[in-house]
Design a protein around this nucleic acid. Structure first.
Lengths: 343, 343
DNA sequence: GATTAAAATTTACGCGCGTAAAGAAAATAA
DNA sequence: TTATTTTCTTTACGCGCGTAAATTTTAATC
């Protein structure tokens, strides 16, 4: 590293013996220049430590290398985990990921989309808030910016959807519970924020019908993203009133289940499988904390790796295709049943 | 909103009857133009929906309105929560926050700092990885970019530090435990990644000494950021060997405690205060999940609001001061004891 | 060695805005 | 009213790079 500081490409061109337009080509794609030229450039870069000005790079370019990643609620470790995975894959693919969280607030989601516009991203991976999302705003955004939806599907919006197969989740948990004991009731929020919840409820009803069993849905109040709190308070209320209709409970998602387990503990309802246990509890998601609950939680696991891998693949396809697919696709990744102690 | 699209300030100038340089002034600070002029601009903005090109704005400007926020591990809900808080405050102060997570990997931390350089932020809020951080890299970064450290202090690095007062955390939990029963042993990782852990250990030793009690430190192996797993496996190992030296355990942090509680449940050690309980467990942090553990966790709470508020305030001071403080300050926010069921 | 294709260079222009300087207009003070 | 200050407009230049077109150099093929 030499003390002389390189201010711009012009100066780097003069010290590397390569023309500025060639440098520009190199920074856009190192493989687009001859090997001998590349070596000269990289030798100069080692000596002088120069980085192109990203603002200058992007202002006169229709398409940047930025990728927006938007999740509805980053304080949920599930989204933190998936975001981490997506970030890494973006970087590996040569893009610059920028992470946003809507924090459960529709107005924030809209603001984020506005800001994303001004960043002119090559593409966006968007996990929308769901029911409370401003559909029209998202639709308009997707019309302008190449966008892949993930996690939560909004019918017809975005160039493609990649998410988990809710039917696969619920069918595995329901069938497991039925096979090993009593059929479960379904524990959920009355008005879920997330569309996956509706699909899980529908899946539960369908599977129970298919098995010739009577479905029983237990709904709890609560509108926010504080699912654990909602699950806990809802369960405490149920314990204090009529109790659950069955001794086997399938939760719509793990965060509700975490709240439920906390309520069970407080009310002295032992959760587990076999003799001496009052309740069986299973759930869906394989939330990062579900192995540390007491007891650990039997659940249907997202395939984080595959969901994030496919999302990025679809995004790269989309960028390559110029931002539009001929046809919107929906890809659903199946779940994997994880047996633990709670059921 | 009119259909005609405004491509740049020049066009907005022509339709608003205001000159382009005045518009430029307006966008940099709406209050810097006369009220009547401001009204004309805003009337035009409502009709035409124009946003300045951020790349063009920033390339010829030494100082942007960007603020970098770097946390060591976003999958930890504590950092997700603090990041959310910081983000909001940045926006309210008229800045554009950009969130990064080092994901526990020093190389990522370095990469993030490199990327932050090219964004030319007005300032950076950095919670470093800690022990595994590349001190020299961070030091060099702080020399170039105005940076406030938060959460983890690195001696002498950055213009200021804002964090929690570890002594306050541990003194409150230790004193509470001693007052209500047996003195605690201290449960921690042998080689913690986070410097706060060292301060908490030191605080424990000091407080025990001050109380004239024999300190007992229980260390578990593990190098990663998967604290729950480390706590759980460490505790299981201890249960299978000599057991804990006392029946009252103070964990260095809540995530370790979550793992410990899971191990206690598995081994049938009832955790709580009073007759019929085998162990008391307390901890530090008031992790978002600590109220949903079984039993719920007695812990010393971070004051998220105050920590984030003070961090942003220091950052704004720093930006106003031109990026340098005459003297590095350290601000420590005390904890608040939260009594729950575990101790 | 001549022919051809590929890559690099030179030249030139433009992106959208920041910003400085000088003069004109408007608001405020006297 | 006039003088003064503030605000705005006009004019002009530059930021660092993308990118296109024409030309020259280099490499590959015969």
């Amino acid at each position: 590293m030499v003390s002389q500081k390189i201010r711009n490409m012009e100066e780097l061109a003069s010290v590397s013996g390569v023309s500025r337009p060639t440098l520009s080509k190199y920074f856009n794609n190192p493989d687009s220049v001859r090997a001998s030229t590349r070596e000269r450039i990289e030798a100069a870069l080692e000596r002088y430590d120069y980085r192109p000005n990203i603002y200058a790079m992007n202002q006169n370019r229709s398409l940047t290398k930025n990728v927006g990643i938007v999740v509805p609620y980053l304080a949920d470790p599930f989204f933190a985990e998936i975001a981490r995975n997506l970030e890494r894959r973006c970087i590996d693919a040569g893009f610059s990921p920028i992470l946003f969280s809507s924090h459960g607030v529709p107005a924030y989601e809209n603001d984020i989309l506005e800001e994303l516009r001004s960043i002119k991203p090559a593409g966006v991976l968007l996990a929308p808030l769901g029911r409370v999302s401003d559909r029209r705003v998202i639709e308009k955004f997707c019309a302008d910016i190449p966008t892949i939806l993930f996690d939560s599907n909004l019918d017809g919006i975005g160039e493609a959807f990649v998410g988990s197969d809710n039917f696969s989740f619920v069918s595995q948990t329901v069938e497991y519970l039925c096979r090993t004991g009593e059929a479960p009731c379904f524990f959920e929020m009355a008005t879920p924020v997330n569309p996956n919840a509706y699909k899980r409820r529908a899946a539960y009803l369908k599977i129970m019908e298919h098995l010739g069993l009577e479905p029983q849905i237990v709904k709890v109040d609560g509108e926010s993203w504080e699912f654990e709190k909602i699950g806990r308070q809802g369960a405490l209320k149920i314990f204090d009133q009529d109790g659950f209709p069955t001794n086997t409970i399938l939760c719509s998602n793990d965060r509700l289940a975490i709240g439920l387990l906390s309520a069970c503990y407080e009310r002295g309802r032992r959760v587990g499988r076999g003799y001496g246990y009052a309740l069986r509890v299973a759930s869906n998601d394989d939330h990062p904390y579900s192995r540390f609950t007491s007891p650990s939680l039997t659940t249907a696991a997202h395939d984080y790796e595959v969901v994030s891998k496919r999302s990025i693949e679809r995004l790269l396809d989309l960028v390559e295709a110029g931002g539009r697919f001929a046809k919107r696709t929906e890809e659903l990744i199946p779940a994997r049943l994880v047996l633990r102690e709670s059921a």
